[in-house]
Design a protein around this nucleic acid. Sequence first.
DNA 1: CGCAGATATTTCAAACTTAAAATATTTGTG
DNA 2: CACAAATATTTTAAGTTTGAAATATCTGCG
Lengths: 165, 165
Amino acid sequence: MNMNNSEGLTGQAGNETSDLSKARLRAWLQILKVSRKIEGELREKMRLEFGSTLPRFDVLAALYRERDGMRMSELSKSLMVSNGNVTGIVDRLVAEGLIVRVPVENDRRASIVRLTKEGEKDFAERALVHESWVSELFSDLSSSDADALIRILRTISHHNEAPHD
Amino acid sequence: MNMNNSEGLTGQAGNETSDLSKARLRAWLQILKVSRKIEGELREKMRLEFGSTLPRFDVLAALYRERDGMRMSELSKSLMVSNGNVTGIVDRLVAEGLIVRVPVENDRRASIVRLTKEGEKDFAERALVHESWVSELFSDLSSSDADALIRILRTISHHNEAPHD
DNA sequence: CGCAGATATTTCAAACTTAAAATATTTGTG
DNA sequence: CACAAATATTTTAAGTTTGAAATATCTGCG
């Protein structure tokens, strides 16, 4: 049986919570706080400046990285949201003319979603402004702190990585 | 006019994006990634273990810290969500018998929300388990990294603090 | 007192989100 | 080939979330 840092050496077990456990909880709450605050700011800017939303921006961003398009399932996996969720966002972006659904050869269950010319142009503009917003919201974050933050968050990410296929 | 790190010294301006700006964007995307992954895990555990949800847990947690209860507006401010949002969550928690709405003396517009005995008992149990989930999900996070993470995130939080009243 | 503006909360419409069920299609196995 | 299982996506119901409008009440000023 596997023993991790939260018990074992200290002999702690059951419901008693260690200092380390509490520090991790504080870290999580702080992540949540920053994440909510920044998302709120970006949501408002996205709405006022572009009349759009963060989920739509996220879909456009994913498709901008994969210019040949992505399947719905790739999209939802990449964004870490449910399939059904992506269906709705994609419907709206199609209605706005920013993306299209293209049938897949030899598999009529699937479809590929990709940016239209207009979607590509719109996203390129929005992405620049978006980056400037983030940089401004993070303007107290030095280069070295940014690197440290990324490193630490990656160790957390990697821990609960989705199991292999 | 104020010049910050993202221009000024390098003479960069307008749409050109600096390395620092890109590092900050990567940091933000990593925060988002971790935040989504952990929230997803906690949401599932909360549902399977307690038949409940994260927003309800958050409300209970806020009320557990303020045993004398909070006004709706204090609650929504503390959770950084809209007033209308809290109304719905509170309605459901009242229906579950975990909290109650109490009228406020001398102000019939307002009401105070507080835990019932059952809500207090239930939350105390859930909080212990919740902390253990977080500690497990963050088990790769050392004590020193937790401290560094909290420090860095606080500098970001403080930057866009809500303006004073 | 009377009432305009401020304050506290709820309601509402639209969007986002999930988990589960439904639909459509493909694949593998006898 | 038949057809069960697997796969890709959409639909659905319930809940969460926002921003704006509506409601109710309070406060202060003339």
